[in-house]
Structure formats: structure tokens, C-alpha cells
Amino acid sequence: MADIIQIRAKIDTAVLDHYPAYLRAEDTEDPHGWCLERARVTVRAADSSGYKFDNHRLEKIAENRRIWLHEKYGKQLLLHRAVERAGTP
């Protein structure tokens, strides 16, 4: 089951395309790290418009589509601006 984490931070949405978007695993107490099967981020502006970010390697859930984040493997997962496709939420 997916966990949904909501973070309320002040971000200037006018500059979203000027800086890299990524998830970072830091100071995890789990010695095995994080196993990501899916990662999507939505940034909502004050006017309720949304900007979606995704990692293309995790778009479809499958046994071979997992990324581990840990000190040994790498702690960052780069996200790209998602392109809306017809029929996708």
C-alpha cells in the first residue's frame, strides 16, 4: 500500500523548472534503506494549480521496477516534470 506524505513548504512555483526536483533519503534509521516502487510528487500553488513530478523508471509497477535509496546505493532519486496523458489522473 502506498504512503501519502504531505509537506507544506513555501515554494515559488515560478522557478520550479529552474532547479532539479528529487527525493532524498537522509538519516534513515532503517539499516536497509528505502525501497521505492513508485514515486510521484505534486506541488500545489496558492491558486490550486498543480505541478506533477515523476521518475520514468517507476511509472509502471513491476517486480523489476524498484529503486533502493541508501548510503551504499545512492540517496537521491531525480524527478522530472510529468507530462499529462489522456486518461491518466
Rank of each mutant, 00 (worst) to 15 (best):
V41M: 11
A9N: 09
W68M: 15
R44K: 14
K72W: 10
H18T: 13
A14T: 05
A46V: 13
E59H: 09
R81E: 14
W34N: 04
L36D: 02
G74T: 07
I61A: 09
L69N: 06
I7P: 01
V41P: 04
C35R: 04
G33I: 12
H32A: 14
W34R: 01
S48Y: 10
I11C: 01
K75S: 12
H56D: 15
F53K: 08
A45K: 08
G87D: 00
H80W: 08
A39F: 04
A82P: 03
W34I: 15
Y19S: 08
L78V: 11
D27T: 09
Y73C: 12
L77I: 08
I67A: 02
L77W: 03
E71W: 07
K10W: 05
V15E: 00
K10G: 07
R40H: 05
G87V: 03
A46D: 08
L78M: 11
I7H: 01
N55R: 03
Y22V: 03
P89E: 05
A39H: 04
Q76A: 11
R57S: 13
T28W: 01
E63C: 14
A82Y: 06
Y51W: 12
A45C: 11
C35Y: 06
S48G: 08
D47P: 06
L36T: 05
I11Q: 00
A25T: 02
W68T: 15
D17A: 12
Y19V: 15
S49T: 15
Q76R: 11
E29P: 08
L77G: 03
T88D: 02
A9T: 12
G87I: 01
C35F: 06
G87M: 00
P20M: 07
W34Y: 10
A9D: 10
R38V: 13
